[in-house]
Simulated assay, not measured.
Amino acid sequence: MSRTHLEIFQGYVHAGAISANADALAECFTPDGVFEAPLVPAGADFPRRLVGREEIRAGMAAYYARRPAGGRAPNLEKSGFVLHTTADPDVFIAEIDTFFDPDETVSLVQIFRVRDGRIAHLRDYFAPGLVSSATP
């Protein structure tokens, strides 16, 4: 049974942004899946490109391990998203406004290409300063 775009998106958000579970996040992808954050500079803490489920698992686990404990969490009641369909049934776009208390909204766009109910390619466009800065 194939999953809907909404189910794929919600699974990805829960595994990553909400629970920071690298294993669950990697399982959202196809074995040859690609994760890209094109706006993140080389040398940043957050990975710019990860290819394959195992590289996604390792790269995100390393990133989650470096994050400070007790970091800020999104306010899910105030945050929102809209999923946009495209002419290609395997591609959808997520337009996201994430709210952080006390009063900050972060807007971003994610482009998903899916295959067999999993993410085959994800491009995550957000301001890179949100997750890290380049190392000197």
Results as ranks from 00 to 15, higher is better:
residue 120 A to M: 02
residue 63 Y to G: 07
residue 115 R to F: 12
residue 84 H to R: 11
residue 44 A to H: 10
residue 87 A to W: 09
residue 70 G to F: 13
residue 119 I to G: 10
residue 121 H to R: 15
residue 106 V to K: 11
residue 32 D to N: 03
residue 130 L to R: 13
residue 17 A to Y: 10
residue 54 E to A: 14
residue 18 I to L: 15
residue 51 V to H: 04
residue 88 D to G: 08
residue 8 I to R: 10
residue 61 A to G: 14
residue 22 A to C: 06
residue 103 D to S: 03
residue 85 T to G: 15
residue 26 A to H: 07
residue 38 P to D: 14
residue 74 P to L: 04
residue 65 A to K: 11
residue 58 A to T: 15
residue 59 G to N: 10
residue 79 S to M: 04
residue 35 F to N: 02
residue 119 I to P: 07
residue 6 L to F: 04
residue 54 E to D: 15
residue 20 A to L: 04
residue 70 G to C: 13
residue 75 N to H: 06
residue 87 A to I: 13
residue 60 M to Y: 13
residue 105 T to C: 03
residue 121 H to E: 15
residue 67 R to T: 14
residue 100 F to P: 05
residue 59 G to S: 13
residue 60 M to H: 12
residue 88 D to V: 05
residue 97 D to A: 09
residue 93 I to M: 15
residue 48 R to S: 12
residue 76 L to W: 02
residue 19 S to P: 00
residue 42 A to Q: 15
residue 93 I to R: 12
residue 116 D to C: 03
residue 48 R to V: 10
residue 119 I to T: 07
residue 19 S to M: 04
residue 77 E to Q: 12
residue 86 T to A: 05
residue 16 G to V: 13
residue 121 H to T: 06
residue 33 G to F: 11
residue 90 D to N: 12
residue 132 S to V: 05
residue 36 E to F: 03
